[in-house]
Amino acid sequence: MQHIIISDPTLRDGSHAIKHQLNRKQIATYAALAESAQIPILEVGHGNGLGASSLQLGESLISDTDMLEACRENLQQTKLGVHVIPGFATISRDLRSAIDLGVDVVRVASHCTEADITKRHIEYARSREKEVYGVLMMSHMASAARLVEEAQKLESYGAMGVVLMDSAGAYLPHDVQEKVSALTGSLGVPVGFHAHNNLGLAIANSITALENGATILDGTIRGFGAGAGNAQLEVLVTVLHKMNYDTGIDYYKLLDIADIAEKDFVKIPYINSSNIVSGVAGVFSGFAKPVERIAKEYNVDPKDVFFELGKRKVVAGQEDLIIEVAEALAKHKINM
């Protein structure tokens, strides 16, 4: 029976859905529940990772330190993970202190064509003897050949695995097949896949990744996450167990956790029109709420905003361009 590593970013990607307002009690409670269900890796933090709390990206209710401590106090077997984007997270201020607080797993992420920026962070985390993965975000924006080049850089820096993120929920299964198989056929380290559900394909795409050699899959409780949400963890584990894969997760407890989390803090995502357009346009799922808010302010159609952002190939961290696009659309509307 093949073992699949499950990483749960409910307390990180999920925070996008509630504007990064998870409190310490909610984090501690979920961490204890994840431990009881033997979830292998639990990721915590601002939706954009360590050091990302800001006016531009949204301010977390509590600090990175408080979030990490709330988890660390409640985890023993479950590994504590963080998402690190160089530029938001510095080594000296953020990564060093996170590791000092007891982080076990470090995922260092970049835009899919900019793996070069991860080198120092990966090397530092490896020097601290942590489990370190490289992550390629918005991976739909690069060809399979280019993703292989970038993934090989991550491996050369010391990444112990490479995770492809479908950050916009833009993939169809044949895209997953092409890109994951290219990586698994070219790397000497494990490959992972992180799905979003904008087109209703998060579970199908995760299984396609698995069938093409991926051995690490991400999922969040009730799909709690940016935009239309992530692969729904309890559904993903159900399907994996039905396919006779081993996850090491206590299935009954996982189902109980989903019910508890829904009552406590999870805002269950659903696929609305904006999410669909975001996926088709290939725009980061975390843009959904600001696009809808800004489009309303400027009296323009959010669908037009998404498609224009897609044309400009806008990525996470460029939220200021949403206003620029909305202003341009509003002026065009007046001049028509």
Rank of each mutant, 00 (worst) to 15 (best):
H20I: 02
E131G: 00
N23G: 07
A109M: 06
A109C: 07
G81T: 10
G49D: 11
H111V: 12
H46F: 06
V82G: 08
L95M: 02
A98D: 01
I39H: 13
S60H: 11
R72N: 07
E69K: 12
S127E: 08
N74E: 10
E43I: 09
S92V: 05
L101W: 03
K25S: 11
G102L: 12
L136N: 09
Y124L: 04
R120G: 15
G87F: 09
H20W: 09
V103A: 04
R96H: 13
A52N: 05
L61V: 00
S15G: 08
V106E: 06
D104P: 08
I117A: 08
T118D: 12
R72F: 03
R72T: 00
I18R: 09
A28F: 03
L75P: 15
S36Y: 08
C112T: 14
R12L: 03
T118W: 00
R107L: 11
V103Q: 00
R12E: 03
S127P: 05
A52F: 05
D116F: 09
V105A: 02
I62K: 02
M67R: 15
P86Q: 12
M137D: 05
I117S: 10
S63I: 11
A28M: 02
K79R: 14
I41C: 08
L11M: 03
R72H: 12
R128I: 01
G47V: 04
S127C: 05
A109I: 00
R120Q: 13
I99G: 00
A32W: 01
D94Y: 08
L136V: 10
R24K: 13
K25G: 00
S110F: 03
T29S: 14
R24T: 04
V84K: 10
S127Q: 14
R24W: 00
R24A: 13
D100W: 01
L80H: 10
R107I: 00
F88G: 04
S53T: 09
Y133T: 11
V44E: 02
S54P: 15
V105W: 07
R128W: 05
A115V: 03
V103R: 00
R72P: 00
M138L: 13
I41T: 14
T118V: 06
V108N: 07
G102F: 11
P86A: 14
A31D: 04
I62Q: 08
N48V: 03
N48Q: 13
H140N: 06
L80A: 14
G14N: 06
I91P: 01
H16P: 10
Q21F: 03
A115M: 03
V135H: 07
C71V: 07
L68N: 04
I91A: 00
S53E: 06
T118E: 14
M137Y: 03
I122K: 02
V103Y: 00
S15T: 15
K119E: 15
M137S: 12
T29I: 07
L22F: 15
L50C: 10
P40T: 10
I117W: 00
L75M: 12
R120L: 12
M67H: 01
Q21E: 05
S127H: 07
A89N: 02
Q38F: 13
S60L: 05
G14H: 04
H20L: 04
V105L: 07
L57Q: 13
S15R: 10
N74Q: 14
R12V: 07
T65E: 15
T118P: 01
